[in-house]
Amino acid sequence: MSEQPSIFDILGPIMIGPSSSHTAGASRIGYIARQLLHDEPKKAVITLYNSFAKTHKGHGTDKAIIGGILGFGPDDERIRDSHELAAQGGLEWEFKFVGDFVRFHSNTARVKLEGKHGGTVEVVGASLGGGRIRIQEIEGFTVDFNAQLPTLVIIAEDIPGSIQKISGAIAEKKGNIANMFVARNENFANMIIELDEHADKETVEKIAALPWVKFVRRVEPMLEGSSRYEK
């Protein structure tokens, strides 16, 4: 039996209007970029593509993405004032617009963040409707995950045995891997590991300490839909 929808996917999501794809999904893309940065963002460059580029103002897509970058969930009423709040908090941002880019889904955003401690990250995500999203690119790697499960994003040198070491570190703490995807470029491998439960800090630190690992981040699913209440 495939995964059945939750009644809360039908009766929700609980969200800030006006549009689940242009507002709720947009804020989630911003929020995931923030988690991947793992720092307080000080600068954001956001490129909106296709329908996002054409209708962002009418739908508040720009406010929703900045809200997500500030760490607001899709149901956080501060989204409406996110630009003022970001300015007060010292975030600088810039929007760019690309009206027609056929390679991307109609509602796509690229978010480039720079953190107060110097880190950077670049993420491309698409908003699919109903508040659901798909992350399609991280740091230039093609990826594909929906951030519905706790997810580890790892970029590491592509050396033999690296996958075993990493999955070993997760299994050691009885973490259960639900799905795993690997993408490679010349020297590096990108691993997206979806887990049944949150990875604890220790596991993450252990993986980060491996000398050939460049980047480890936890992405936690947002509290909405079936996971909106405490389990």
Binding site: L11, G12, P13, I14, G17, P18, T23, K63, E77, G130
Partner: peptide, 21 residues
């Protein structure tokens, strides 16, 4: 109106139809 003004709603089943239930 609340939805159009970026207020909080339950999209049951969607944001566009959130007023009926």
């Amino acid at each position: 109106e609340v939805n159009a003004c970026m207020g909080k709603i339950a999209a049951a089943p969607t944001a566009g139809s959130a007023g009926i239930l």
